[in-house]
Write a protein that binds this DNA or RNA. Structure first.
Lengths: 226, 226
DNA sequence: ATACCGGATATTGTCAACAATACCTGAGTC
DNA sequence: GACTCAGGTATTGTTGACAATATCCGGTAT
């Protein structure tokens, strides 16, 4: 009766993971028409599972498929990245509010511990990259699951975050403000610890808003094109 | 070079649509383990395209699949429906705000015309069902696309609305307050026409909030179980 | 020279057979 | 009598071949 994730890992799952990471990391060029056979030889798969994985990816908006014409990775634009952050703002605001209402004390303690670890990384000055790549992701990940809102977590973790990471890789951008972000993270967690959902939502929205404005500034400076 | 939707309709698309409507309408029972062969004979398909469609449906959260154990339609609960409305509240609030900023005058005029049509339906007293089923959907549909936020529209139209409709069918619930809803719709459109994004967001959030409270009331009264 | 049209080709969509695995049934044991 | 375990069976996962179609290239006409 245990709800443990099934150990069996099907070829289609494998294909899906390979393709997803390849797209997110930018190994597959956007707009490029990639053939199914190429992908098969590339990932040591056969066409059946591959096609199933392609269907899933298409449904998640990571690639587009025209019948008999092949698949191509979605073209990305900086303006779309900004739109993504607008969505994140409202959805993660909600997640923060619900997390403040529903997270267990243990989960909150773990979250605070995570933040301490991040701070140590940054203080060592070499952790900037780590913080950007993993720490920030970890923070938002925990809050999404802590919301106890199944669909919300699914949309954030299964769709949006992959999109954001893809755009970040493609446009080679990053928030680039680790210290500021850490302080904002701290205040959000404090609000959650005090079970102040309204404040947690406000702070989370402002946090993501700041990240969005940072990106918009870069666009204006011409550092991010298309 | 026109961006027109490809006319070719593949068997997998067909399977996807059939399955999706069957799930949403409740023809496929939740929790039931349905075999692939059953589905094939039921919809006159073969297993290849079917499996591709199953992958897409799974990725959208309409069904769950355990390797070698078959697929089953997601079990739904009233509390999850409430969670869905919480997500709608923030996402459609954003959509309304962006629609107020970006919709063309023509689109706004069309939206107002749609509302007038709905009002006529309701005044004829027999249109209640129509309004619930199509009118409300049409209204929210137009605002989602009017936001000009590709991903937002995709998430609302491709994921959330199907989920909401499924839950409505399954729990045989409906907002059941057409006149009130129409008034709220009118005020939202007025705010959009005045290009007041902030107000449009506020009104939309309150509109969906009211619908959620209505559902919660029904749950409390024991009309909606599980 | 450019635009249009028709066929060749390579790629995608589809199908049916083969292999692997989870579930069920039955016997055996504590 | 209840539980465990092993084998059979039916279902799913995978594979390779076949059919359909969009793209590309060459020819022709304007």
């Amino acid at each position: 009766m245990s709800e443990l994730a099934s150990q069996t890992y099907t070829r289609a799952d494998e294909a899906f993971d390979c393709l997803q990471t390849a797209i997110v990391k930018g190994d597959l060029a956007p707009g490029d028409k990639i053939g199914e056979l190429d992908l098969c030889s590339r990932f040591e798969l056969t066409r059946g599972p591959l096609r199933e994985a392609l269907g899933r990816l298409e449904s998640r908006g990571l690639l587009v498929r025209r019948p008999h014409a092949g698949v191509k990775v979605v073209s990305v634009s900086a303006s779309e990245l900004v739109e993504l952050y607008r969505i994140r703002e409202v959805m993660e605001g909600l997640a923060a509010r619900q997390a403040a209402e529903r997270m267990t004390d243990q989960e909150i303690a773990d979250l605070q511990a995570t933040l301490n670890a991040h701070e140590a990384m940054i203080d060592e000055a070499r952790g900037q990259a780590y913080y950007q790549a993993e720490g920030d992701y970890d923070f938002h990940h925990r809050i999404a699951t802590g919301s106890r809102n199944t669909k919300l977590a699914q949309m954030l973790l299964g769709d949006l975050y992959y999109m954001v990471r893809m755009y970040r890789y493609r446009l080679s951008t990053s928030a680039g403000r680790p210290h500021l972000a850490l302080g904002e993270h701290r205040r959000i967690v404090e609000a959650i610890a005090q079970r102040d959902g309204e404040l947690a939502e406000f702070l989370m929205k402002r946090h993501i808003n700041a990240a969005r404005k940072n990106i918009e500034k870069k666009i204006e400076e011409g550092l991010l094109t298309i």
